[in-house]
Amino acid sequence: MSTQLILFFILAVIAILSAIGMLVSKNSVYSAMFLVLNFVTIAVLFLLLNAPFIAMVQVTIYAGAIMVLFLFVIMLLGTDMAAEGISMPWQPPIAILLSGALILEFAFILFFAQQDVLPQIEAISAAFGSPQSIGKLLFNFYLLPFEVTSVLLLVAMVGAIILAQRETG
């Protein structure tokens, strides 16, 4: 087995375990920390795939910024312990149904429809995941989605500012 394969299996096990840990933790701070671990593991997987830019952005944005905000809110609201007594009887069946559908879809694409779904891609160069090539792709080929996303984020930001604004008068 090559070093890459061994690394992949170790990372995969950590990723799956941390995902399970996130789901079953009673304490939401633990859940958040398991999710951070999961994000970092995924970032290392990106590194293995020769995509250092995505890996670093994954850590900075997901593990760094977003999860810190989550943790901040959890601590500020004091909701660290899962509220006992509140049960959602409708939740488990729907979750099982939806995740079952997802797995079926996944298996179908993997085993039967792989050729139709994946476009025939050429061998990618080593510079594929470099900041330069991603920047070029974003600002040329994907310019419109990029700009639409930025407008969306701007709208969300303005909305947050208006919601947090203190009432005057």
Binding site: A43, F53, M56, V57, V59, T60, A63, G64
Partner: peptide, 8 residues
């Protein structure tokens, strides 16, 4: 970017 990621 590595520096920023670790700092975050």
């Amino acid at each position: 970017l590595y520096l920023l990621a670790v700092a975050s």
